[in-house]
Structure formats: C-alpha cells, structure tokens
Design a protein around this nucleic acid. Structure first.
Lengths: 209, 209, 209, 209
DNA sequence: AATGAATGAGTTTTCATTCAT
DNA sequence: GATGAATGAAAACTCATTCAT
C-alpha cells in the first residue's frame, strides 16, 4: 500500500505541477524538465509514470475535468428546485477551488490543444456536453428542452467569456475568482439566464416595457 | 516601385502565413520553417524581414488589431444614433472578414502569449480599451458613463465567449462566422446590452414585471 | 562516486578538447560540435554540462589560469632568495606543461575574447595582476616597490612577446617550449630583469661603462 | 579614370572598414555585412570587389603590411648612422599612424589567422623577415651579422609583447600609442638592444660591474 | 523505484554568397 | 557598377526520451 500510495502521490504531484507550469508558461510549450522540477522529481520519473508528455497533459486535463464534475455534482445534490439547480451549476462553474487562474489558463491551453489532439478534443467535448446537459436539465422543467438548449449554449459562452477575461485580462490575474468579482460574475450569468428564460416564453415582455 | 512592393508583398504573405500556421498548429509553437513554407519563401527570408520569430508574431497581432479597428471605424462612420453605434460596434466584432476561425485562433494564442510578452500585452490592452471605450461612448448618451462601464465590460466578456466557442467548439470550425450563426451571435449580444441598459435604469422592470 | 567522477571526467575532457580545438582552429570560432567530437561526446552533452559555449570557454580559461598558478606557486615554495624567486616566476611562465603551443594559442584567443566578454577580461586581469605582483614582491627586497613596478610590467610584456613568437612563428610550432629554446627564453628575460634592476639603481653604470 | 578611382576608393574604404570591424569585434568573426555597413556599401559590392571574405581579409593584411613597410622605409631614408637606423626601425614599429589599437588588434587576429590560411602565413612571414633583416642590417656594422640575429629576434619578440599589452590590456585601450607611453616603449626596446649589443661583445661588462 | 547520463531530432538564427535587375 | 532579394549551409541551443545502474 505504501508503494501504491507513493506512486499516487507522485502522479498527483506531477499533474498539479503540470497545471501550474502550463499556467506559468502560458502554453503547452512547458518542458518535462520544468514540470518535473516543480514536482521535485527527475524528468525520467515523469516518463516512468506517464509514458510521454502528451499522456501527462491528458492526465492533467482529465484531472481538471474531474474536479469540475465533482464540484457541480456536490452542489446539485443539495439543490431542490429547478432554479436552485441552475444556480448550483453556475456557482459550480465559478468554484474558487477549481477555477483558479492556473486552472483557467490550463483550460484555455487545452482548448487549443484539443484542435490537434483527438483525446483532448474528446475530453473537452465531454465537458461542454456535461455543462450543457446540466443546464438543459435544470431549465427543462421551466421552459421545455427545446427552448432550453440555445439558452444553455449562450450561457456556456458567457461563462467561458468571463473566465477568459478573468484569467488573462483581469488586473488581479493569478488570484482565484472570489469575493465581489465572483459574485458579480455569478449574478451576471444568472441574470442573463433569467432574462432569456422570460424572453423565450414572452419575448415582448423581455424588453421590460 | 517594384522593389518596394516586393518587400511589402513578402511581409504581408508572411503575416498571413503566420496567422494561418498559428491556427493550424493551435499555438505559438509553430516553426519559422512552417510559416516560411506557407509563404513559399525560405526561413532565412522570414528572419531577414522580421528579425526574430517574436517580431513576426507581434507584426501578425498588429495586423489583426488593425483590421479589427478598420472594420469598426468604417461601420461607426455610417451610424447616426447611439443605438446604431452600439450595433456598429457589435457587428464589427463579428465581421466575417476579420473574425474568421484562423483569426480567432490567432487571437486566443495571442491572449496567452500576452502573459509572457510585454509588447503583446500592450497590444491586447489597446484592443480591450478600444472595445470598451467604443461601447461606453455609445452607451453614455443613453445611461451616462458610470452605468455604461460595467455593461461594456460584461458585453466584452460575452463577445469573447462567443468567439471562443465558435473558434474551438463549433462543428463548422474553420468557416468564418456568418449567416444565421453570425446574426444569432449579434442578436444575443445586443439583446444582452439592451436588457442591461434597461435594468441599469429600472432594475425592477427588467425582470419583465 | 562513480557518478561524480563521470561528470568530472567529462568536464575535464571537454575543457581539454576546447583548448585543443581552439589551438587547432586558431580562434573562438570553434564549434561546439568540434569540441564535443574531440571529447567523444555529443554536442548536447557539452551544453548539458556547461550551459552555453561561452561558459565552456570561460571554464577552459579558468583551467589554464589554474594550471599557471599552480606551477608558479610550486616553484616559489622552494625559492629562498629574492633572486631565486624571480627565477621561479620566470621559469613558471615557461613551464613546458602549462605553456604548450595549444595553451599559448588558447591564451591569445582569450586575450582577444576578453575585449568582448567581461568574465574573460576579469580572469585575464587576475593573471596579469598575479604575474606583476609576484614579480614586484620578488624585486621589492632588492630595489623597493616603486622601482620594481615598471620593471615588472616590462618583463610581463617581454614574456608575452616571447610566447607570441613561439606559438605563432616558431618553425617548430606545436611543440612545447623546451630544451635550448626554453632556456634561452628564460635567460633572455632574466638578463633583461637583471639589467633593468641595475639600471634602476645606477643608470649610468648600466651602459656597462 | 573616374571609374578607376571610384573603384580604388571603394576598395580602400572596405579595407579600412574591415580593419576597424576586426578591431571592434576582436576576431575574424566579423561579418561581411558589418564591414560593408562601415564602408557604407552593400555586402554584395564587397563581394563584387574582393570575391570572397578571405580575399578581403588578405587584402586588409597586405594593406597593414604596406603601411608598416612605408613607415619604416621613410624613416630609414633619413637615418645616417647604424645606431640611427636602429632607432628608425624601432620608431617605425611604434608609428602612431600604423599601430593604432585597431591595427594592432587586426595584426593579432591575423597572427591567429595565419595558422590556418597559408597566404596569411606567407604575409606574416614577410613581415617578420623584414623586421628581422632590417634590424640585422642595422646591427651588422656594429657587431656582425651572426651576433646580430639573435638580438634582432629577441627585439622582435619584445616589440610584439609591448604591442600586445598595449592593444589588449592597457587601461587606455583604443587610443593610439603616443606621447609618454610611446616614448617609454621605444626607450625600453632601444635600451634592451643597446644592452644586448654591449653584452654580445663584452658579456662580463653587461652586468654593470 | 528513481535518477544521472546521454543523445537524436529539431528549432531559431546567422551569414557568406549568388543573382536578377 | 551597384543593390535588394533570396537562400543553403551551418551553428548554438533545446528537449523529449532512453538506458544503465
């Protein structure tokens, strides 16, 4: 067991190191040596555990996706109304633990990576599908699945846009999204969803006339 | 004249090749050799004209920014009301010529690059400032500068989010954003701005009560 | 221990190879590939151990300086009179082991290199200072420090001049300076110093009147 | 004639530019582009006039040798006694016009170059032979050719040594050798020759006893 | 399990040189 | 005669990866 847990610890350390290094470097151009250095192991060990660089990167991506999934799942567990489920999902997307600046940078880098690497593309598609289906499921009781889908897609875009600005542009880059900024981001998205929900059932009223 | 135009031609071809190559590769990891190949010149010539790889990349970024600027400026010239100015800016952001998938990919890569390269950061800041001040100027006559600023920022995030999804996720990746998708994107952003404008003056009414 | 000695061995081999290669090429224009080839390792390994070409060259220079220092130090240890100390220093400068043709070539190349590289300049200054202060210390008991200094400087110039000719002009270029040539060189320098010492105390008598 | 003189002017400018550039760079590593820039012509023109880089370098060397020769020849013309001829030669070696720091650097670089390039070696040998035969001719009337030769060789070494120090080590590097330094150098060499002349005829007396 | 040693393949960059005009 | 355009060849340097221990 000690052996096994030692290995798990190393693997975890390497994955975290990879995410940090990607954030630090701003691209997949990070070297195995740099990742290994951050994890305080030799580059050879990283290969020993993960095979090739790409495999380590995919493992890191999988790790981020798993954390995201866990955060949303847990929040959904205590949400009892459809509206509460929507909030759970949106809040999950801005969970300070999962969506620290490092993670956001890493996500973006993976977005780009996905265009070349099929496995990365598959993982990213899982994320998008999960976010969308979560939102659609939450919206369906209110407005039906057909009307829910475009709203879910638009909300997904908005969430990504807020991430993007926060991770790359915000003056406080590097700090996890929390406090007023986080609440403002959540409020922005929720307001948008509420508005689109109303509009989709009563377009005229949406203009607030 | 033939002399001068030769240099301009090569420089332009190299810049276009760089953007295409960045899109193709999905990162700044593109090699000078690949860029030169796409421009049908030797790698040495690329260095001859641009000095170093970074300089070529910055030139490409500048090129994209210039095209964006020109598109918005031209649209603003014919917009007569504040509301029309808003539409001009939003439409400019989704100009099919400027915001083809290659260009969007390149922008994203530059977003990441900006974190390491000060000149890239400066150019990006110019873009953000321009977009925001354009929107604030257009919104100010309607609701005043103070209320306009957060709305402009949120709209900027939305625009970026829609780009992101389009460039990286859309099933028709590679095609410029046009037709129904483009109109839907523009409508989405404009709806959002209109809603936030109303809400900022009459929060209660915004919920469509 | 085997590990450690492996690195030391390679470093030593690379330094020796660098000196040989500089002699062979006659300039710092030697390539890392050539140096690595002479040391029977890959160019990448040379970079692995020394970082950059300049670092290897500086290490080589330091090596030569260290050998020179050791040779003079050892000779001084057994010299008991001031006059014997002078001979020890001069002989040390023509130590056949340190001042083989390769080493002299390398020194000359480093002389030139010092004009561009501050670290090389620093090392060279150390050498000059050491030679001069050694000579001044040896001469001081005979004629005082003030009169010793210009003589030490002139002797240093002479020593360099003899090296230069030997390394670049001698018909037997490539052979270390030894046998009659070496003794003649030493005698020449010592004669010069003796003469200047006498002259500095009794200028009129120096002309042998 | 205008054509011809234009060509000569360009050639001269390129040769001077090459010498300056070699001094500036401290090695033959200078680029044709840099030399051409200093001569305010295109690199292509340098090739047009000289063929290849090596040919330009040889031409520059020849130019230095020619200037040296002219300086000594002119001085010898007005020297009437053997002793005056010696002074003429020594002074010629320290002619401020020919032996500015640039020229000395260039000489040294050529010394090294001569080890690889036969033509450079030939030119250098001419220089050494000329210096030596000049000195031997001047000394012969005083002590005979046989005794003159080793003295001439030693004096040559000394001259080179003084150059070396001046060009590479002197705190006022870059300034031509003139004023007190120049006179001191000349005095040093002449003193040395006088001493050796006396010594070669009367070794015992040389010690100043 | 873990690592230092070692390298091949590849990347940016430089530069002498050629050539069409 | 003079030059800008263009490039092939080569150099420094990097890095993922392998291997013996």
């Amino acid at each position: 067991m000690s052996r096994r847990s030692m290995e798990d610890e190393r693997r975890g350390a390497l994955i975290r190191a990879a995410i940090d290094a990607i954030d630090g470097e701003g691209s997949l151009g990070v070297t195995m040596a740099e990742i290994a250095r951050r994890a305080s192991v030799s580059p050879a060990l990283a290969h020993h555990y993960f095979g090739a660089k790409d495999d380590l990167l995919i493992a890191a991506m999988r790790h981020l996706l798993g954390e995201y999934r866990a955060g949303v799942t847990q929040r959904l567990r205590t949400a009892e109304t459809p509206r509460a489920r929507i909030s759970a999902i949106v809040e999950g997307c801005f969970d300070p633990n999962q969506f620290s600046a490092e993670a956001i940078s890493a996500w973006l880098v993976f977005y780009l990576h996905a265009r070349r690497n099929p496995e990365a593309a598959r993982l990213l598609a899982v994320y998008f599908r999960r976010l969308e289906s979560n939102l659609v499921d939450a919206l369906a009781p209110l407005i039906g699945r057909d009307r829910a889908r475009p709203i879910a897609q638009a909300a997904g875009s908005m969430i990504d846009g807020v991430w993007l600005r926060h991770a790359l542009v915000s003056p406080r880059r590097g700090a996890p999204l929390h406090g007023p900024d986080r609440l403002a981001a959540i409020a922005l998205i929720e307001r948008f969803i509420d508005f689109e929900v109303v509009r989709s059932t009563d377009p005229a009223g949406a203009r607030g006339a």
